[in-house]
Nucleic acid binder design. Sequence first.
DNA 1: GTCTATATGTGGATAGAC
DNA 2: GTCTATCCACATATAGAC
Lengths: 207, 207
Amino acid sequence: MLGDRPNPAPTDRRAARREATKAEILDAAWSIVRENGLGALALRDLAARVGMRAPSLYQYFASKYAIYDAMFAQGARAGLEAMREIPIDDPGAALREGAHRFFEFATSDPARAQLLFQRTIPGFVPSPEAYATAVETLELTRARLAAVGITDPDATDLWTALVSGLVNQQLANDPGGTRWARLIDRTVTMYLADVASLPPAPTKGKK
Amino acid sequence: MLGDRPNPAPTDRRAARREATKAEILDAAWSIVRENGLGALALRDLAARVGMRAPSLYQYFASKYAIYDAMFAQGARAGLEAMREIPIDDPGAALREGAHRFFEFATSDPARAQLLFQRTIPGFVPSPEAYATAVETLELTRARLAAVGITDPDATDLWTALVSGLVNQQLANDPGGTRWARLIDRTVTMYLADVASLPPAPTKGKK
DNA sequence: GTCTATATGTGGATAGAC
DNA sequence: GTCTATCCACATATAGAC
């Protein structure tokens, strides 16, 4: 039996090296995508950036979609972390801070936003695992709203529409600028006034 | 000189036939795009739908981008027409009707919305002529807001953010549903209250 | 004049040599 | 584990049949 396994436990070493290479590939993918747009990711270019030929990438990712999926997971994780640990001073402040952080997260990297929030790559659908992180972020937002006393589903949907609207207009019509960023506080104030003016909305039962 | 021009004036006939074929191609392109997504437009498929081979399309459009551009122009024209002739009963009603019409226009055809409002095809930029129609629609909205007494640029930007936010959330998270459509009236009311509560904003001069 | 046949270049992806 | 060679689908361009 001696010598049957020439590598007693180098498995973790291999795995670590492998993970490092995958990370390197993903970094290169992000740089391409940020430079030339999300749709401009070509495996040949990507391979060249990490000193490989295109087919070698298939040792690390099963397909181009798998690369997009890993990028989606990274982006979603970054978004979740950006939204974590917001100090709650008063009702309005927490929401305001949340809006600012999300806006900053989304507009600071247009390519990432396109990957996460628009379904723009033909045929690409994020895997359940990758998507779970995105859902977690939404849950966190929901919880934050609830902490402020907002539990009405309509009010929650309205909130997401407001924030996403500001982000979208900023990205589409004034990328890199502040035309819609300047409207965040006003929008939050407007939203809070609206929610306050409406009845708490009965949790169940029609009319 | 006689006989030099064997076709004295069939030019308009030819032109008419040609335009008809172009229209037929565009119709087929829309149907493909609505079925399989905006990015799924392949010239082979498109040609097959109109009984041609791919290269023949180049007799009618200089490139694939030219097809997208013609589609963009058609979409923008449809949007402009959808927003025209809104009866102005009272300030709120006109805005409300405008929001509903735009929402309906944008959400009723996701592929068209993607072409018009998201820059999703790599390398495609609408021609100035096609884009002019889209700008015209925005001007119309601006004029409608002005008719209601809203001329503050910030208030105008806020309006577009609100409407686009509702549209985006509807398309992204509940396509074909009414989850955000139901919030249009509430959003308009909220917006009008906000605009009314703020000072008219001095047209010029800082502070 | 209109379309077909054909060719080129660029993608993603796979098989097999080393 | 990385390479070369290759395949297939696609957009695109040109030559020539009808």
